[in-house]
Design a protein around this nucleic acid. Sequence first.
DNA 1: CTGAAAGCGCTTACAG
DNA 2: CTGAAAGCGCTTACAG
Lengths: 343, 343
Amino acid sequence: MSAPPRITSLDVARLAGVSQSAVSRVFTPGASVAPKTAAKVRAAAKTLGYRPNSLARAMITGKSRIIGLVVAYLENQFYPVAIEKLGHALQAQGYHVLLFMASNTEGEMERLVEDLLAYQVDGIITASVAISNDVTRRCSDAGIPLVMFNRGQPGSGLSSVTSANALGGRKVAQFLLAGGHRRIAHISGWQGASTGRDRARGLIEGLAEAGQQPHAIIDGMFDRDTAADAARTLMDGADPPDAIFVGNDHMAFAVMDALRAMGLDVPRDVSVVGYDDVPMAAWGAYRLTTVRQPLMRMVEATVETLLAQIDTPDRAAQSIEIDAPLIRRASARCPEGDTDAGL
Amino acid sequence: MSAPPRITSLDVARLAGVSQSAVSRVFTPGASVAPKTAAKVRAAAKTLGYRPNSLARAMITGKSRIIGLVVAYLENQFYPVAIEKLGHALQAQGYHVLLFMASNTEGEMERLVEDLLAYQVDGIITASVAISNDVTRRCSDAGIPLVMFNRGQPGSGLSSVTSANALGGRKVAQFLLAGGHRRIAHISGWQGASTGRDRARGLIEGLAEAGQQPHAIIDGMFDRDTAADAARTLMDGADPPDAIFVGNDHMAFAVMDALRAMGLDVPRDVSVVGYDDVPMAAWGAYRLTTVRQPLMRMVEATVETLLAQIDTPDRAAQSIEIDAPLIRRASARCPEGDTDAGL
DNA sequence: CTGAAAGCGCTTACAG
DNA sequence: CTGAAAGCGCTTACAG
């Protein structure tokens, strides 16, 4: 006995003494079947252990109810938590997730998308992944909607859901300024990503509004080691900053570790502010002041946008930005008399 | 223009001036086609943007090349990293991952498996999820192999891949004893899971070999809050422990945070040892001494076992245990003269 | 409400 | 090496 014989609707039909179409109708919500017939069919299905073959159904209906999810680095805690929520939200809508791990190898994304399309996914969500024009075209040619999560691609005509990153950066500038900081450095997120660029731009603009400018900016590349190096460079310099805004929490933890290893106290010697508010930011070892990306709302917006585009093929792409509040914890000196508690 | 018309092998055949079967053969590795024919077909496919429909292929061949992956809590960093590696390993073998998020709702796993089977997955991997006999039977009836990752289910006849958990617990006992600890407490992993039980048993056995026994054991349920509470209870007691072995790193971080919040120094006041060696364990804020689960080897063993069972339906289930080394860092007092460096 | 029949897009014997 | 044909397991008009 190798592969056990598959139970098909025909098997059920024979046992129930009805036609194969009747069986199909019983498992098609909204189809008209007599209660008696349905009962007989369900009974037969149960004894046989029958369940409709989703692949066959997908072929006929042209809808696989599969969403392709492309992700890259799961080490940054923001993404696993996002995947978890995205997965639950999609499952709740009767969709399934085909997960693709992308590295940043040349042309990898192109190959992944071919695979995705071959599996007839109804839509695609990408997280922390760059999209080439080639990919964009392939998807729109195939009529498959794509929404970028936590990253935008201006001018690509692709839908995206992000937090209001520039505004977030601006909030950090204002908060730090109000706290009396005057040498505010930025270890930015990767400048190749909209997320990294927008947060940096926000900080610069916020500072400019007060007639100031960043003390220094170093690209942290969303990488722990790069960020830690940057922190050391900054603090070893002749004129060290009194605050560092780090482009995401993942790097901010590395920065705090590096600072402490240098014998520095956070926030007495330097304030540190992150971006994301991953669960770890609240942990005792860091108590990181950071900008919170409202994950649930971002997930909901992503799923909603994608499903809307699936249901309405010609719907225009939209870029959704969700406001991100600053969460005050212990890693940055607060403005005097500031009573806003924060978690 | 809603759904753009799908390009099928027939379209390609017409353009290339060959039969539909010829087109199919060009995309079937190992099928015999004349080089000239193949060239014509590929050219036509390219201009049309054709790719074979994987769903249709799956129906015919009876192999979907999809593996169902069921996971639960992604907050413990061990799992995202495992998913990342599992995903890459499976992709490298030409398989795809259908991801299912399980909560621990009653009967949820049963529903997920029905869905999984409906999508005709070739195999299933579960991580940190309990399997009922019902599920086991459904899978074996359908001839779909299942392997449990990082969890075993003795007597279920299911394949599993874990580290040598009991041995790991024993190593911790010996290490702590050699370090001069005499009041060794255990905040265990959930005792409903083999992983939690085996590590606890190993500790107990290791202690027993030296004529000792655990100072106290509290079930931490693999939960941060529960573990932190346990740590406080332990240290507030009349006779606090001089070392705590925590059932996994995820809880150990919470324990260290709680200990420090009590004004205690780790390891001067209490040694702490974890289990897993997630990336965060090496971070400056924790420098956690822990037992390393060799993730790559566990992933390889999991994929290998699963694919072997897919290829050979009647292959017996196997439980693989992989040796887990103790990694010495800064959270536990080391035996005197111990020169073993650790990361 | 129900059955017979066509068809989704492919793979794979079967002849030639 | 190649084409015509059957069939994978379903859904869905189409008659009745």
